[in-house]
């Protein structure tokens, strides 16, 4: 087991350079250290000017997504010793503009997330006095997988369609829309349908499947998108054949 490992960290300081460069740091490599530990060691002891995002360090906040040796990863969930003897290359998350060093601009995803209305939409809310909404375990099962999304955006980094066309709504947004569409408490499927059916919505996806490969929470956004394509296509067919009838699904 190596005692130290070299980290090649991307630096980008817009006030002094036009493009990113790499800076090498040698950090200790105990068995239990993750890449984030390495970055924290750099910031605490070697170079306090390094900028990056992190928070919970346990894979639930979704802040620390970066590109490690070319792969989108959560740096708090990626062991340094897996890359021994190194070097480990740490770059900012792909397909997002880089603000500084390892920090990317995530506004695009945030705006798209709001557009798909990732909350329970109901025509009338039940008052608290009437008690809870009841769901069977099967009904929870329908959407549970998609509710595990931590908004880490690794799927956006992996998706080549998003890389080529930033207008594409993206895997996580669609998976989260599906999480609510499939929730029996929700009545907002029709509202989400309009956003999702745009050309840069679900129809931009060609099922590359990389999003599912990199998702740290096994959300399977590719599956969510394909299933929603079928739902949306059947709805379109139904509205064509029965313009007035059919009823909302």
């Amino acid at each position: 087991m190596a005692e130290r490992i070299t980290m090649q960290v991307a630096r980008y300081r817009p006030e002094q350079e036009d493009a990113p460069t790499f800076q090498e740091y040698e950090v200790p490599c105990p068995e239990e250290w993750v890449v984030l530990d390495g970055l924290n060691y750099v910031k605490d002891r070697l170079d306090g000017t390094l900028s990056y995002r992190w928070s919970c360090r346990m894979g639930i906040c979704g802040s620390c997504g970066m590109t490690v040796n070319g792969e989108p990863k959560l740096t708090c969930a990626t062991f340094l010793s897996d890359y021994a003897p190194g070097p480990v290359r740490v770059e900012p998350l792909r397909n997002f503009p880089v603000i500084r060093d390892l920090v990317v601009e995530i506004g695009d995803f945030m705006r798209k997330l709001v557009r798909v209305k990732p909350w329970i939409v109901r025509d009338d809310e039940k008052p608290v006095s009437e008690g809870e909404y009841l769901q069977t375990p099967q009904e929870v099962d329908e959407y549970k997988q998609f509710s595990m999304c931590i908004n880490c955006m690794l799927c956006y980094a992996a998706c080549p369609i998003y890389g080529l066309d930033q207008a594409f709504i993206g895997p996580a947004a669609i998976a989260l829309a599906q999480r609510y569409n499939l929730d029996t408490r929700d009545e907002g499927a029709a509202q989400r349908h309009e956003i999702l059916s745009e050309h840069e919505g679900i129809w931009g996806c060609t099922f590359v499947g990389e999003c599912t490969e990199v998702c740290p929470k096994n959300v399977d956004p590719a599956g969510a998108i394909q299933r929603y394509k079928l739902t949306a296509a059947m709805d379109s067919l139904r509205s064509l054949v029965m313009p007035r009838g059919g009823g909302a699904q």
Binding site: K229, A233, S236, L237
Partner: peptide, 13 residues
């Protein structure tokens, strides 16, 4: 209602 697009039908085919 969103304007009718051909994409869903093309995808079904």
């Amino acid at each position: 209602m969103a304007k009718r697009s051909l994409e869903p039908f093309l995808w079904l085919l």
